[in-house]
Design a protein around this nucleic acid. Structure first.
Length: 479
RNA sequence: GGCCCCAUCGUCUAACGGUUAGGACACUACCCUUUCAAGGUAGCGAUACGGGUUCGAAUCCCGUUGGGGUCACCA
């Protein structure tokens, strides 16, 4: 069975890159009837952030990429929290030590730093651990360890030959073993490093395909060597292309690129974000740009993955989100979800017919939920402000607004058709172009010259509100 | 700097030896029109460079350049 995983570390905000990896891991697993798991890699106690794990798991739920197994949904291969598996890691580290594939190194961090610095001062580029303790006799190593001297366990990489990483996307990538470092496997604190822990856990959890970001490619030979030392088969390696920020560097929250939570607060739909991520580095065979996770599951192939990094273009994401609002979701769905968003943001409006009517009018006029309220406030309060342009239009309409109010008050009905005939007739008899009448009217009832169409706007507002708004506007204008 | 990956419009991408190099976002113009949007039409705009291979290269090979990544007791 195909088993894929993501292995995020709980160090901060839920990362877009994590969502990106989750997408491809999910799609590939589902396509093969397999299993997608999330393992939280919390072995770095120094950078651990208590809320981060919950937020990462919440993000996945929000996106609809809920894993088959995770710290929230354990199964017999768990636990899915790396720190809880330290005994397992130590046990396998021991195996590596006994088999001669690893050795104890007693250098302190300070010594290492000093040597690194000295090398730099000599103008040499740092070449990795200098292997001082690589050939310490086992007896001495055992004795010093037993005496309580702190040590780390390091991988004994071959000094000659090469290690080949067979990558699904890039073919065979060859590494000269002389370029490899004797990486730390077990830290002084007894916790494993990523390299050991991930390989042990992946194997024990039955992971068949390691789909991860390109940054891991160069450490893969280390992983291959660990796997070989333990006598295990390699998974299939798949290193996906980069997600880039606006400056062309790797997308990163630290650099100021938005997190998934930022997009959520912006009012981006999860399906739009996923769709957008799906077209970063991949494309539908028929060129469609609007597609969902299910479409990806049906059509995904590695052959269609492009290897150049993709720049994350928020402008296009916004366009795509607007597209979902206008063409993919139903009106009712947009209303319901927008209402939930507003509630979450602390805006209290009833989810009623008026709200639905407003949403219907406004939907082509905003791309993300966060833009809605600011552009639609006047639909929900009689106390809306008049902006500068509106004030000017009100002045333009001073001569006829009073007559227009009377005409509106006497209109036989207040539906779009009636209103259109009435307004055009009014303009005609006043010898004005329709726009000259409608713009001041619009300014009066909306406080801005930018609004949905005049007739539908009036209908949605209703006669009572329109008349009282005109009263207020005229008093504001003459003040 | 060593090593590794990558390279089509500003951006996301299509093309898997033969196309006027296609589409989308953005931008510009026009249409629609009561404003703002949405929508429609058109325009602008790319195979980084140099060598090969081939009847024929965006496509295959080599080099150059450029960009990115990685060189932690972080993941």
């Amino acid at each position: 069975m195909v088993v894929t995983r993501i292995a995020p570390s709980p160090t901060g905000d839920p990362h877009v890159g994590t969502a990106y990896q989750a997408l491809f891991n999910t799609v590939f697993a589902r396509q093969n009837g397999g299993k997608f798991i999330v393992r939280i890699e919390d072995t770095d106690r120094a950078r651990y952030n208590a809320t981060s794990e919950t937020r990462i798991l919440d993000m996945l739920d929000w996106l609809g990429l809920t894993p088959d197994a995770s710290p929230r949904h354990e199964d017999e291969l768990g636990p899915y929290t790396q720190s809880l598996r330290a005994d397992l890691h130590r046990e396998h580290a021991r195996r590596l030590l006994d088999a001669g594939h690893a050795y104890r190194a007693f250098d302190t961090s300070e010594e290492l730093d000093a040597r690194r610095k000295a090398a730099e001062e000599r103008g040499e580029s740092y070449r990795g651990y200098d292997r001082r303790d690589r050939d310490l006799p086992r007896e001495e190593s055992d004795r010093r360890a037993a005496a309580g001297e702190p040590f780390v366990l390091r991988l004994r990489v071959p000094l000659e030959g090469e290690t080949v990483v067979r990558d699904r996307l890039r073919g065979d990538v060859r590494f000269d073993n002389r370029e490899l470092d004797d990486k730390v496997l077990l830290k002084t604190d007894g916790f494993p490093t990523y390299h050991l822990a991930a390989m042990v856990d992946d194997h024990l959890m039955g992971v068949t395909h390691v789909i991860r970001a390109e940054e891991w490619l160069v450490s893969t030979p280390i992983h291959v060597l660990i796997l070989r030392g333990l006598g295990w088969d390699e998974p299939e390696w798949i290193h996906t292309p980069w997600l880039l920020g606006p400056t062309g560097k790797k997308y990163s929250k630290r650099r100021g690129d938005p997190s998934v939570e930022d997009f959520r607060r912006m009012g981006v739909l999860p399906e739009a974000l996923l769709n957008f991520l799906g077209m970063m580095g991949w494309s539908m065979p028929d060129g469609r740009e609007i597609f969902g996770v299910q479409d990806m599951i049906e059509h995904f192939t590695w052959e269609r993955v492009s290897l150049g990094g993709s720049t994350f273009d928020v402008t296009k994401l916004r366009w795509l989100n607007g597209k979902y609002l206008r063409e993919v979701l139903t009106e009712e769905d947009v209303a319901t979800r927008l209402h939930a968003f507003l509630t979450e943001q602390g805006v209290q409006v009833p989810l009623d017919d008026h709200f639905r009517a407003v949403v219907r009018l406004m939907v082509p006029r905003f791309e993300v939920f966060s833009e809605f309220w600011e552009k639609s406030t006047y639909f929900f309060t009689e106390d809306y402000a008049f902006n500068e342009k509106a004030l000017k239009l009100l002045a333009d309409g001073r001569d006829f607004l009073d007559d227009l109010r009377r005409a509106l008050a006497e209109a036989p009905a207040f539906d779009q058709t009636t209103l259109e005939a009435l307004l055009r007739g009014f303009a005609d008899s006043a010898g004005l172009k329709p726009g000259k009448v409608m713009q001041p009217l619009r300014a009066a009832v909306a406080g801005t010259p930018e609004s949905p169409g005049m007739f539908e706007l009036l209908e949605v507002l209703g006669r009572e509100r329109v008349l009282s708004r005109l009263d207020r506007a005229m008093s504001v204008a003459s003040a």
